[in-house]
Amino acid sequence: MTPSPPTALVTKASLLAGLLVCGPALGAFDPGGFTIVIVSTAGNATPTNTVTPISNTLWSATGGWSTGGASVSWTNNTQGWNPATNSGFTNGNFVVRNESASAQDYSITIGMMGSAAGPLTVSGSVGGQFLNTSFGLGSLTSVGPLWEARADNNVVRSELNNALFVAQPFQVMSLGDFGFDNPFYEVSVTGSVSLRFSVRLSAGGEASFTSTFAFQAVPAPGAVALIALAGAFGRRRRRR
């Protein structure tokens, strides 16, 4: 898989304005291991984020962001990064709401900083619901992909391209579910992996997403040969 060039959805200025929300550093993460950046047409605000270390390689985050009637909340976004095994994952749930009087755009990026030696196998999924709490027709759209899994800001996988969902007043819609499992990612991760949601919500709209992204180093050919030899040796010994 050839990584595509990064999409410049988040500018340097917006990165600064959105403020990186960093948890306390544990050994397995680089400093500032957990980041959440939200850019919206509704305005700028500082996210509040509580990061709880579950173990040396596992973190959980809960938080929120709101301005001008727009809000984003995330719950139990768990991230794990194990540099010893060159593996990691992030998963969790986002709820995006628009209580303003007009449609609003949101770009939400949740990332974790770190590195892993490739090649890697990667897997992930996304699913969700759209809820229209207005008294008129409501819509959820995306300009380009709604969901992207990224490594070093290169898109590894995207789903729900040019999505359009239209809901009646007080209607709940399933957005479907999308996933991929173990495509080969040839290169190493040197900086971060992240998930990005890009969505436009009509007034009174609410979108809920559940998403996962995981990666795992592929054992080098030498290691595979060693494992095979060990297995064969063990079998021979058992026969004796």
């Binding site: 897997s123 999924s125 699913g127 619901q129 479907g176 579910d177 996933g179 996962t212 995981a214």
Partner: peptide, 10 residues
Amino acid sequence: TSASGTTSFS
């Protein structure tokens, strides 16, 4: 039925 998978339902 897949690792880290998701299913949505109405």
